[in-house]
Design a protein around this nucleic acid. Structure first.
Length: 434
RNA sequence: GCAGGGGUUCCCGAGUGGCCAAAGGGAUCAGACUGUAAAUCUGACGCGCAAGCUUCGGUGGUUCGAAUCCACCCCCCUGCACCA
């Protein structure tokens, strides 16, 4: 890796990825040579979700530009819980649980950055390593002494917890900032790490670390935040009716992941291309221009879905997702061959095996059991509106008490498959037992 | 500790004895329209195919009948006091 790409910050800026940075513009100069930077990821579940994608990809952008990235997994901070902009105190997870999550997150994070590229190879660290044996008294004397409570109370990130009615903040969560600040200081000391990046909600924690590093080591370090991802319609990014979009394929299949991005609103598509893909800003501008000229269905979402899915699930994931999408949405799902159907199942289309005997189960019950809806109400509504299709045939509410008839072998595709569509986009593949 | 204000269905927020499964808004789901968009319109939105069943911080009580009244308890907020 020869040299450093000095246009990095400019590119990040063009992508809209810079929210705030410390140092009055000195950061550009600082990054003129290869530096070490870090970003933290707290284990709050056994997988990251797409909320962590911007920081993760930004870390990767820095590495591509010649800097050395450290991914910090918060084995310690995950035990405490970050209060930043959280409306309420959270429950603590047990050390065993968090330790298990740390392993998962470490593996996940590791796939994004390159550990074998010479000088600027990546590293993964765990902040539990330098906190687990630290004594309370040492902590209070060496770290706590550098923080002003007056200052901390005024942080925007905890203000609502301190001022707002109905919710308070425990000392535990209030101390979170000290732990994270200590991370930065430690990484500066141990690895000459001079930049921390994170989401905009991390600004307070990051500046805390910048200050602590200066006070403990007289070190000059920098912080930079990326914007919170927002959607043009104001709803929360990263959620769908079926919940959070996870990076773990076991939680969110590549197909569902791909569909999530494909359903991006026009108003967000180009912004997301800049945030989440490695296409150059010029290329993205060109896509936007072409879409505007053409009128009709834009190409942006398709490109976005393909690029991001490839980033997370690889070429195979994209291929699987596109196979399913094509089969279900463009064309004739009635023409699928037996091996096509088998492929859909392997590609991750939600599927289940029908019971040999339905007993007195209703059709609604069967679909709910399969996870197509959280309760019977929406299914009933859909049945009443001809919005349930079994192998392309609309099924009405009158068939509700006759699942055996609906799913009879005579009507099955290739003798055993049923593609059930509920609404416009929810598909499920049923197979007959045996 | 004292005084005052609160805890309602995913969220916000009405509701102060029956007309309440509980207004309104948001989110969400389905239909029409479309581009597997957006906007708009329509319907649904505690659970149940249904009959019906279970809810309004908790527990008891008053009443033919309670989210609404009473008692006690739990939790949150505000002020004062105590402590310092």
């Amino acid at each position: 890796m020869a040299g450093v790409d000095t246009t990095l910050l400019k590119d990040l800026d063009r992508r809209g990825l810079i929210n705030q940075a410390t140092g009055d513009g000195e950061l550009t100069e600082h990054l003129a040579q290869s530096r070490t930077l870090y970003c933290g990821f707290d284990p709050t579940a056994d997988s990251l979700h797409i909320g962590s994608l911007v920081p993760l990809l930004t870390l990767k952008r820095f590495q591509a530009a010649g800097h050395k990235p450290i991914a910090l997994v918060g084995g310690a901070t995950g035990l405490i819980g970050d209060p930043s902009f959280k409306a309420q105190e959270r429950n603590l997870n047990t050390p065993e649980v968090v330790a298990g999550w740390v392993d998962k997150i470490r593996a996940q994070v590791s796939r994004f950055i390159d550990f074998d590229c010479g000088e600027n190879s990546a590293m993964v660290v765990n902040n539990l390593d330098w906190t687990k044996d630290l004594s309370v008294l040492d902590f209070l004397r060496d770290v706590g002494k550098h923080f002003s409570v007056n200052n901390m109370v005024n942080k925007e990130s905890v203000k609502q917890r301190i001022q707002r009615e109905g919710e308070g903040i425990s000392f535990t969560e209030f101390s979170y900032m000290l732990l994270q600040s200590m991370d930065f200081s430690e990484l500066y000391r141990g690895y000459d790490c001079t930049l921390q990046i994170g989401g905009s909600d991390q600004w307070g924690n990051i500046t805390g670390g910048v200050d602590l590093t200066r006070r403990q080591h007289r070190g000059k370090v920098f912080g930079m935040t990326m914007p919170l991802v927002t959607k043009a319609d104001g709803t929360k990014f990263g959620k769908t009716e079926s919940g959070t979009i996870w990076l773990d394929p076991a939680r969110t299949s590549p197909y569902a992941f791909y569909q999530f991005w494909l359903n991006t609103a026009d108003a967000d598509a180009y912004k997301f291309l800049r945030y989440f893909t490695f296409l150059s800003v010029d290329e993205i501008d060109e896509i936007e221009r072409a879409d505007a000229e053409r009128a009709g269905k834009p190409e942006a979402q398709g490109i976005l879905a393909r690029e991001v899915t490839r980033e997370i699930h690889g070429e195979e994931g994209v291929a699987a997702a596109e196979r399913i999408s094509r089969a279900l949405f463009s064309g004739d799902s009635t023409e699928l061959s037996e091996s096509d159907l088998e492929q859909l199942r392997q590609d991750g289309l939600p599927s289940s095996v029908l019971p040999a005997d339905f007993g007195d189960q209703s059709l609604i019950h069967v679909l709910v059991e399969a996870g197509m809806a959280p309760s019977g109400k929406p299914v009933k509504d859909a049945l009443g509106r001809n919005a349930v299709l079994v192998n392309g045939q609309a099924v009405g509410i009158d068939r509700n008490s006759d699942p055996a008839g609906v799913f009879s072998q005579a009507h099955a595709k290739c003798g055993r498959f049923f593609i059930v569509r509920l609404g416009k986009k929810k598909y499920h593949l049923f197979t007959l037992a045996g």
